[in-house]
Design a protein around this nucleic acid. Structure first.
Lengths: 253, 253
DNA sequence: ATGGCCGTTGCAGATATCGCAATACGCCTG
DNA sequence: CAGGCGTATTGCGATATCTGCAACGGCCAT
């Protein structure tokens, strides 16, 4: 770990609180003014800090550009996977992670009992969008207009008697999911399979992914599965925190 | 200027191109692997880089969080936002707010039809500096020497046949914008999109920000959009007044 | 004018950083 | 299962780099 770089980087969260002048930065860093000056200059040359007209420093524009590119490379799956594995170890059931893309909802990760392995054969396949818990979570977060438009376009196949029958029912269900912050699929896709899921949110609060736990009701009934809800929600929230940068480092040796 | 910090920060744009492993980073930095390792570790501890499961490095989510806090600290945005929303309600089109920083022009706020939401996906992204109405407004206010120097440094990509073709044309356009006090972009960036914008000025009369209204010409033609000019200018002036503390509406303390 | 405040610079000493080489680890091959 | 290869990691000494100091210069308010 480099001391100089460490100090320089510590300036960034400091400036995130608001603009500061040289003296303030030096004080809060606990270094001499000349030292702070040189660090700020280097940050400035890289565009990470900007010097406003009153000579105070604040975070710079390059930060935006980098963040932009960072987000494009951000793979939720990488971050979520360990959490999914842990959840699987705790409850023993199949765990899914899904995202919404182009009017489809796709699984992007899956952890199955005994098999902490990426089942690519299944991953990437569109889910039953009108009934799956993860689909409800992802679509419930859309603006109302889009939700409406999408609901109209969809087909509502009756996989089982419990499948969502039509657009009206679907929209109503989405509204409920939106308000309660979690979703279920109780035998809506396969008669004997129940799911309970929770949303993963980004910094802006929007739902970026959804996860769920699935189990056949020969193992646990729907009601029993619901007792896992707190655990599922905690896991989803942990992923959200890490994804949005709220927990920068978890285990620094 | 600090060599160590300089090297560390050089890693960020490098990783913005995509994930890289230790060796690649060391090579591109021109330093020994152990050096690169220590720099990367420091960046990692601050959350600026993330280590994915294949041990390669990638930009981290903390960058996103920092950029977000940075944009929230811009007081122009605070002041302007309600005005932008009102303008959006009145005309129905997309409204942008942008500032100039370090040879770049960036959007710092955006209000979209029905959607008074911060689109961070777009906010923070540098604008097409040679054609956007807001860019013309901000650059037109620079001292002539700076304007000239900047115009020479820029590239002039031909997004469309109407894009500004070269430095000479750009300077001429800036001169006109400077005199008339407003600017347009008629299909210079995207063939079917027109914009009309006006400057926001501080106490000393200098342009501190610029705003614009954009609409596809399938909705309104360029001429029709121009009829909104008085409204846009009035809004910009209202923001200017409030920003420079001469707001007739409400006076703080 | 003049004193105080803040940012900036040159310098010599201190120390953190660098590259090297050796080690450890994971992965694939035979 | 052994062996080999590529990569990440660690300890260490030489030295380039960073640091704090003190002096300078500009700016503002008294």
């Amino acid at each position: 770990m480099s001391q100089t770089v460490d100090r320089a980087l510590s300036i960034l969260p400091l400036l995130a609180e608001g603009p500061a002048d040289l003296g303030q930065v030096a004080d809060r860093l606990g270094v001499h003014k000349s030292t702070a000056l040189r660090l700020l200059r280097t940050l400035h040359e890289h565009g990470l800090v900007y010097r406003q007209s009153d000579q105070r420093y604040r975070l710079g524009a390059r930060l935006f550009a980098l963040a932009q590119e960072a987000v494009e490379n951000l793979d939720i799956r990488e971050i979520a996977h360990p959490h999914l594995v842990r959840l699987n170890e705790e409850c023993g059931h199949t765990v899914h992670l899904a995202v919404h893309e182009e009017n489809e909802v796709l699984y992007i990760d899956k952890v199955e009992s005994r098999y902490p392995v990426r089942m690519y054969s299944r991953i990437g396949k569109p889910v039953a969008i009108t009934v799956a818990a993860v689909a409800k979570l992802l679509l419930a977060d859309l603006p109302e207009a889009e939700r409406r438009a999408l609901a109209d376009k969809l087909d509502y196949p009756l996989y089982t008697p419990r499948s969502t029958p039509n657009a009206a029912a679907f929209l109503k269900e989405l509204e409920r999911v939106r308000e309660q912050g979690w979703a279920t699929d109780l035998g809506g896709h396969e008669e004997s399979i129940n799911c309970v899921g929770a949303p993963v949110r980004g910094t802006d609060g929007r739902v970026v992914a959804a996860m769920s736990v699935s189990a056949p009701n020969v193992v646990v009934t729907g009601d029993e599965l619901l007792t896992l809800l707190p655990l599922v929600r905690r896991t989803a929230e942990a992923i959200s925190r890490e994804y949005s940068g709220r927990s920068p480092v978890k285990d620094p040796v």
